[in-house]
Amino acid sequence: MTAPLLEVRGLTTAFRTEEGEIRAVDGVSFAITSGKILGLVGESGCGKSMTALSIMRLVPPPGRIVSGQVLFRGRDLLTMGEADIRSLRGDRISMVFQEPMSALNPVFSIGDQVAEVLRVHRGLDGKEAMGEAERLLERVGIPDPARRISDYPHQMSGGMQQRALIAMAVACEPEVLLADEPTTALDVTVQAQILRLVEALISEGERGALLITHDLGVVAEVADAVCVMYAGSVVEAAPVQDLFDDPGHPYTIGLIQSLPTPGRRSFHAIPGNVPDLADLPAGCRFHPRCPRAQKICSEREPDLDGTAGRLVRCFYPGREHAAMKRMI
């Protein structure tokens, strides 16, 4: 196994709210490796975006990182000085967001915005930076880049905006790309194009990605390994094929089963709702919705347990226990 490019250990990010402190990210650990895409999947509000923003040290107030480490090239991003993290951000580690329109600056042309990244981090002069920006726009599949370089964000479709944002993110050849639902706002044919682009960018050079999505189809299509999050914590981590062939956590199983099956007009739902982070159930936070829950599940929180790369946070994981439960 190759050494990870970026390692997240026990990351916890909290918000102080009227109902008390909530942990949007609660003890999350994973590693991003070179040439690979790690999928981070879970339903809305489970802490995916806050995980990525914590890595970048961009958690919006009143949120704050409470504990954990984010190790990159032997250094902890969470303890380094503000100037140091700022020089890494957008250069060695960069992020792509779900809503390109709100991530782009409406009053500058996309050429200017890509060139700006190169001026700040690479010290290129204006002309060099514009030339390089044009090359990057071409690389991310923007047709006729020499003309489109002076377009403003509002003149572009959502798909083209997302391509421009990706061009900014990869302008400095970052080692780590954090993509937060980059295709959720896009139509399916454009989504396919953007996913192909992300794959191509990861396979070239020493680079790894965290791809956040709520769509298991997207995970299956592009991720090499997957972390499944539920209510702020990772409940399962596995290579992608294993996750679909032999899901371990009842929540993962429920998510996979809730996907529509062709030719069958029946839909398998997970009962109940995602819990309120301010009022988490005791024990396993999935237990009130879990078909396998036993007494211990409401008393103790299970550890994320297993062998390297195949971890499940459940007292009764996998097929074996599914069979056992049927016999009870």
Binding site: E221, V240, I256
Partner: peptide, 8 residues
């Protein structure tokens, strides 16, 4: 063709 299939 563009639908992401939940099958790796």
């Amino acid at each position: 063709e563009a639908i992401p299939e939940p099958d790796p």
